[in-house]
């Protein structure tokens, strides 16, 4: 009876994994970076609550007109009122019945990290970056959003240090909802502008009845 072969203890790693180790080891050996510093940044990204930050910002803007005005005037300062880090200069784009905004970065992948966290892969993909500037309506339909031709579609190509976030319209029928419940209606995609916010489906437990 043949002896069982022991499984290999280590598989070869993909190139970028070993390349990353090579760069880190050289930089920390030379004292140019420290392990503490790199670890702290990893933790910060891993613990980041992502689009929940932006959802809180939107819900506050829906219930507090004075906050909404401050947010539209200076997004980075206004989000600090909710305990968020200031981050990059933030321009908040208000959707209205006649105007729908959608955000992209055609040249790289600029994204409003201070409110949305790390971008999804599709946002960074050549397909999204190439198409949304030339055929935004087709892209929105692919995301399940069909808007009437009477609605102007404004595409914002993030080419400078400014970051853009969409303030979706508050859905009808949510007048009785609390700020915390409203935040649950705000998706990442609605704050990029490839979706809108919806009222909870009838019968859903939203704590409003």
């Amino acid at each position: 009876m043949a002896e069982m072969t022991a499984p290999p203890t280590a598989y070869p790693e993909p190139y970028p994994a070993s390349r990353t180790k090579a760069l880190e080891s050289l930089l920390v050996e030379k004292g140019l970076l420290t392990t503490d510093h790199i670890d702290a940044i990893v933790r910060r990204f891993e613990q980041d609550i992502g689009p929940l930050k932006g959802a809180k910002v939107v819900a506050r803007a829906w219930v507090d007109p004075a906050f909404r005005a401050r947010l539209l005037a200076d997004g980075a300062s206004a989000i600090m009122e909710l305990g968020l880090d200031r981050g990059a200069p933030l321009v908040v784009l208000e959707n209205t019945p006649g105007v729908h905004n959608v955000v992209v970065c055609t040249l790289c992948s600029c994204y409003p990290w201070s409110v949305l966290g790390l971008p999804p892969t599709w946002y960074k993909s050549p397909a999204y970056r190439s198409r949304v500037v030339i055929e935004p309506r087709a892209v929105l339909r692919e995301f399940g959003l069909t808007l009437p031709e009477t609605t102007e579609i404004r595409v914002w190509d993030s080419s400078s240090d400014l970051r853009y976030m969409v303030l979706p319209e508050r859905p009808a029928g949510t007048e009785a909802m609390t700020e915390a419940d409203l935040a649950t209606l705000v998706t990442r995609d609605a704050m990029i502008g490839v979706a809108i916010a919806h009222a909870p489906a009838r019968g859903a437990a939203a704590g409003t009845d």
């Binding site: 040249l107 892969t121 599709w122 190439s130």
Partner: peptide, 14 residues
């Protein structure tokens, strides 16, 4: 510099 290019297909989401 991808803006306006054709041919990248549908947007794949995860």
């Amino acid at each position: 510099d991808l803006g306006g290019m054709h041919g990248f297909g549908p947007i794949e989401r995860e």
